[in-house]
């Protein structure tokens, strides 16, 4: 019994390590057809985590974490200017936030 768990882990590791060739890769599941085009299911909901409580930095702190050529999505309202790095949004895709008290979702 002692060896059971490591064995299961080893098998799981081997299975995960075998790269599926294109021919073996199962077709992604079609969830439904909308306006004539299929919607595919690739991941479980929230497998890529949206940001719900975004924190922001300004000035030198902001400059230190950004590269000059880094692409950003930005909005300026006159009273506020905010931007989201698309390199960072790659990992989250959605930021739930507020802009001048309006609830907004920045999506990438």
């Amino acid at each position: 019994m002692k060896f059971r768990l490591p064995l299961i882990l080893l098998v799981a590791f081997l299975v995960a390590s075998v790269p599926l060739s294109l021919a073996q890769r199962p077709d992604p599941e079609v969830h439904g057809t909308f306006e004539g085009d299929p919607m595919y299911t690739l991941l479980e909901p929230n497998a890529i985590p949206a940001i719900d409580d975004p924190e922001y930095v300004t000035g030198a702190v902001a400059a230190a974490q950004m590269a000059a050529e880094e692409t950003v999505m930005g909005v300026a309202t006159g009273t506020d200017a905010v931007c989201w790095s698309t390199w960072q949004l790659d990992r989250h895709e959605i930021v739930n936030d507020r802009l001048d008290d309006t609830p907004i979702a920045a999506t990438w």
């Binding site: 975004p54 924190e55 922001y56 902001a62 950003v72 930005g74 931007c83 790095s85």
Partner: peptide, 22 residues
């Protein structure tokens, strides 16, 4: 809501007080 896509350099030059996602 209209947003723009640009580079950090151009955005922060035009909006020096901007907030950036931490």
């Amino acid at each position: 809501i209209a947003t723009v896509q640009t580079t950090w350099k151009d955005w922060s030059d035009a909006h020096p007080a901007t907030r950036a996602l931490k």
